[in-house]
Design a protein around this nucleic acid. Structure first.
Lengths: 203, 203, 203, 203
DNA sequence: GAGTAACCGAGACGGTACGTCATGTCTTAAT
DNA sequence: ATTAAGACATGACGTACCGTCTCGGTTACTC
């Protein structure tokens, strides 16, 4: 718990923020392909060794930059009431998630993380998962609550639902230049809910 | 219709194949991050200008290499009978698709294409979609047949189904180092079919 | 003597001129360093093989281009009377030579030839001499006439005189960006004549 | 006066020497035409950027390599006595200069410098002069001493003498494959001295 | 006239080198 | 021990030329 005080000049935490900001800025402007360690360091007004001391690679830097972007900008779905049904909580979460990708900022971050994970599976080692786990588990949590309340089938593969919802949005992001229609999210929910609901429990 | 013969020495089609082969070989060994134009040209025994004359960028080369890989290796799902129901055709297609990603060759190709599309959205211009359209339309075709036969709801958003199925597999590929469980594909189908079927048409 | 008629379509002499013209044009604009076979061929509206069929190398092309430039543009000194003394003929020749280098055209040609000869002594094989022999021998001829008339010492090393005169102009061309002063030529003549004149023969 | 210490890692002076040595080695073996920046960098065991950081072009590198070669290898003429006459000092200098070109090492250096200066007059900007000024001024110094002692004419154009002597050697180097005869140097001196001597001052 | 052979343009080919940029490590002086 | 600055070896970038080749087509001499 207590920080170990190492000798010598301590690291300046302000540099971390400057570097992460710079990284996000470059990602937004030039995409993952256009992000070089050199460019980020220069833009942040920081020496290269300072950058390498904190993140050993482009992928690691991007992962952190994206994660912090989520923490800062996505405060979660719009506070569902504690007594909301599983369907409502699921729908609220997914609508918020699908909408967030409409923000170019956010879309750029997701694409960057995807690029980092896809370009070298050996090195990335489930980089993507590690940094999207928060959202993934948030979604699975909502689903589990629906199961607990008896609304959703007990034998439903909740991870399959999560993969389909998140994967669907990702795939649209990769293949559509125009923004994904919000109606598509609605339709997908309507498709999945019947299979998810416990028998004898109409929508 | 007839090919216009441009003046000058014609391009040697054998170089195309040598380059695409070399690209696939590098992708398989080193991933998208480890693919350099230089390496591909050298491996193919070809000069760099010959490579650049055909593909202006790494992303374009990879896209073609992956596309030709599919054409060569994925002859489609295992020939569903013409009288198969929509559910059967859909399930057959998706099982085959999910299984194909189990092949490391194929998985590497999909990851490479994903990396190319994600790393520079400006340049890629729906690169991914362009090269996966074949599979996408094949899937949507099966779904449409199910609608025509009255088995599937006429108002179902077929593209939402396709996005969810393909996206689900892609997301698993990106986030799981271990191979995706075949059971997951089955579960997803069971989740989607109830919402897809026309009312009064039990599974 | 009579040309051997080879079978097949004869070479088009007009291409030679177009190529030599193009070469001179490039030399004048970009210098020897800026002359590429490609550029010359393109400028002349001619295919590369047509160029290589006539001149096997940059140096050979430049040598010919420069030689033809001299033949075309330097009709020699301003016609000395047949009864002119050796001193007069020498001075006339040298003044004309020194002046000709003042012409940027001509200066560029001399520099190009110098570059070609200097850059690869192995390949050039006295390229320079071969193409400047005309002027060299013209000068030595004037000197020999002076010896024959008894005006110049019989034991004078005429080639040493020629080397000094031509070399002096060349060295000035290489080391002075501003144009060489015409007075310099006059002074050099005054320096050399006393040593050249036969004893008892005042200037 | 005191060197300003710029921030960052200072340049390694050893690289300069390695690069200049490599350049001279290549010049000697392959001539100016055969010298590529790539070859020099590789031979010196140095990266290309390190080379380009110091010399922006082939011509600049060659000029420095040649200059340092002279500084290292040509300690000047063989120490004329302080009481030597102008004629003697002049003859000593010129004999040493003419002989030095007999050394293939030295000849290659002079040719390389000539090539660099001749091939792109725009870029070179009196490159040649800048790097041969040392010798030029040494020679003019000897001549001026002769004028001061009254041996040489006060109105002699000393630069014309220098141009003729140096230019003569250069021209022979460019046009003769065989080594220039030492007798030629002697003859040239005999030709020039009468015109150079003050009236009433016999040789 | 039909062959035939060398010409012509255009441009692809395997190469080499260009000059620039980024990588990740290092050295330096200063904080 | 950290910092900014920047040199360093390495290697890829995308481009320009090299000199050779392969095309379809042209031209002129020889059967």
């Amino acid at each position: 718990m207590d920080e170990v005080r190492r000798p010598g000049r301590p690291r300046d935490a302000a540099r971390d923020d400057a570097l992460l900001d710079a990284a996000r800025q470059v990602l937004l402007r030039d995409g993952y392909a256009g992000l070089s360690m050199e460019k980020v360091a220069t833009l942040a007004g920081v020496g290269k060794p300072t950058l390498y001391r904190r993140w050993p690679s482009r992928a690691a830097l991007v992962a952190d930059a994206v994660l912090h972007s989520f923490l800062a900008s996505v405060p979660g779905s719009p506070a569902p009431g504690p007594h909301a049904t599983g369907s409502q909580r699921l729908a609220d979460w997914f609508r918020a998630y699908a909408a967030s990708v409409g923000d170019p900022h956010h879309a750029a971050m997701v694409l960057a993380l995807t690029a980092a994970a896809a370009e070298s599976p050996h090195a990335a080692e489930s980089l993507y998962r590690q940094h999207t786990r928060g959202q993934y588990e948030s979604l699975v949590g909502h689903l589990r609550a629906g199961v607990a309340s008896g609304e959703f089938r007990a034998d439903a593969d909740l991870e399959a639902v999560a993969d389909a919802l998140i994967g669907s949005v990702l795939y649209q992001l990769l293949t559509r230049t125009e923004q994904a229609a919000p109606a598509r999210a609605e339709h997908l929910l309507q498709l999945l809910l019947p299979g998810l609901r416990a028998p004898g429990r109409p929508g």
